[in-house]
Design a protein around this nucleic acid. Structure first.
Length: 106
DNA sequence: AACCTGACTCGCC
DNA sequence: AGGCGAGCCAGGT
């Protein structure tokens, strides 16, 4: 199982209506410093439908500036459609919608 | 095969 | 308080 696979599985476990930071996903697969790798993994393999990459945001709740899926605005739109609370146009309400405890994937 | 870079995050200065 | 460097993995040059 490669690191990328673990990233994908962790992201797949994020329930609809919730979001997780790159760091949280990284922590879920065993190493918080993999946050960067998490972003890269989603970058090279944004499997539409299989991996809800739009539910992954930065630690402050801001969506990535380089979201290559139709623009960051598209990501926000998808999240809003799932009932995720927003603080403003680009920031998710982490206090309410952040996932608490993604099952550890090893 | 080595080096650079990239959807991040945290700790020092 | 804001800016910079380090740590992680994989893929392209």
């Amino acid at each position: 199982m490669t690191t990328f696979e673990r990233v994908y599985e962790a992201v797949r476990r994020i329930p609809a209506g919730s979001v997780a930071s790159y760091g949280q996903v990284a922590e879920a697969i065993g190493n918080r410093r993999l946050a960067r790798v998490v972003g890269y993994a989603l970058h090279v393999n944004p499997q539409p439908g299989a991996i809800p990459c739009h539910r992954v945001v930065k630690r402050d709740g801001a969506v990535s500036d380089a979201f290559a899926f139709g623009g960051a605005n598209r990501q926000v739109e998808l999240l809003r459609a799932e009932g995720v609370a927003f603080l403003d146009e680009t920031h998710v309400d982490m206090a309410r919608c952040c996932v608490r405890g993604i099952p550890l994937v090893l």
